[in-house]
Design a binder for these strands. Structure first.
Lengths: 240, 240
DNA sequence: CCAAAAGTGTTATGCTTACACCCATGC
DNA sequence: GCATGGGTGTAAGCATAACACTTTTGG
């Protein structure tokens, strides 16, 4: 079935009776800071598409699950752990990678502005640089990563329209105005302040932290989400 | 990168510098007939799990897209074309196949009772038999196919709750009572007849065919779905 | 004429939406 | 004291959900 051997030049070789594709995982990582919805991209250090920006990702090891691979890549390239992660879609057009047949299982991740700020954004092995980009102002992307990102953005929109997970993009404590701003930026539409507050509070997933955000004007109450918030994830349209 | 060579025993070999997983596609195929929600399974002719029932599927060829692979497998194992097909999820636990690392991209398909009746349900190369099974009364399944089928059933439920695609499981012409029966079987709950009819007609995706289903009792109007029905796929909860 | 499925409207309730003003703070 | 964002309630319209009887056919 499979043979492992040395080839003439001393490289280890893995041989199979039928050709096999490579399988990678890529991660679309979103956060929200400075009033912008952002995604993490890495700049490619080698061919193909040298110098272009791409989604973080890499090859799946044979002894790890797909989700574990996504988590590992995220940790290696960003130092982040404890991330909301879900499988997005698998892309496998034959011509999507010039090096040969590469099928990629794409994950979708949301991290808090806290984590994004703390994390070591550094390139891994095959990356020379990593940076957060405003999703509405992206550079040209390598491979088919542009449509993949579009698709992830659709999923994010869907998630915020139908669930109350928007707070995952914010720091642990946040004001209702900040949360509303997340929704407005992602959904690209203005929302009514009173209706927004009524609805998000009715969902019963937030509690007052007791603190206040001090600023230039009237201080705003800080909220945090409660434990049940994530499991709940009600599929009801929340914001008209 | 890749080498193609003859091994000692004359078999062709494909060699790579790093180990690669196998990639398959599997298809969960649903239809509705004789008042039952059914799925197509094939009985395995060879190891592993010889004699057990499994989802139809097979290896992805390197020159075809994932969706094309799903369509090809479906054609090879059932003779069906023109199917509503969408990607469901990718399963890749390291131990899910005893032969080694096999990642499977699972597709979700709905076919009409017409097509199901016409189709040649025959085994392919690696299948000795194929049959439709009531989804609520399945045999033991090979590999991790039982949880995969559960997940597909969840997706089907979700689809019927939020869209009006239930008619895809029925013949080209059907009565509203038949359609209601699909919804009730899939959702496992009774629905109010008047509300059901009002709502499905309000969706504006059905038209009267002009014919009647003759039977033991009062004949029922036959409907067919209109062209726009499939694209529309409104995400609104349709049935209370 | 009886059994069985087809077909048909109305009302109460709750949710969604639209809308405008006062409050607390920093400068 | 004024500029700025924080915070609050109500009423109209719409969609949902509950509910029972008449019609048509075959046997």
């Amino acid at each position: 079935m499979m043979q492992q051997s040395q080839s003439a030049d001393g490289m280890q070789q893995y041989s199979y009776a039928y050709p096999r594709p490579s399988v990678t995982v890529d991660v679309v990582l979103f956060t929200f800071s400075d009033g912008e919805l952002r995604t993490l991209l890495i700049q490619r250090a080698g061919p193909p598409h040298t110098g272009q920006w791409a989604l973080p990702g890499g090859f799946v090891h044979l002894d790890e699950s797909l989700e574990a691979a996504a988590q590992r890549e995220l940790l290696e390239e960003t130092g982040v752990e404890d991330v909301y992660l879900e499988q997005l879609y698998t892309f496998g057009e034959p011509e999507r990678d010039p090096r040969g047949r590469v099928i990629t299982v794409v994950y979708f991740a949301l991290i808090s502005a806290d984590q994004a700020a703390r994390m070591a954004v550094r390139g891994g092995d095959d990356a020379q640089d990593a940076a957060w980009w405003n999703v509405y102002n992206l550079p040209p992307l390598a491979f088919d990563h542009a449509p993949i990102l579009d698709y992830a953005l659709q999923r994010l929109r869907w998630k915020l329209e139908w669930t109350a997970l928007g707070f995952l993009l914010l720091p642990a404590q946040f004001t209702l105005s900040e949360l509303q701003s997340v929704y407005e930026t992602v959904l690209k539409e203005g929302l009514d302040k009173r209706n927004f507050r009524r609805k998000i509070l009715a969902a019963d997933i937030l509690e007052e932290s007791g603190g206040y955000r001090e600023g230039d004007h009237r201080p705003a109450k800080l909220y945090r989400f409660t434990a049940k918030a994530i499991e709940l994830e009600q599929a009801r349209r929340r914001f008209p």
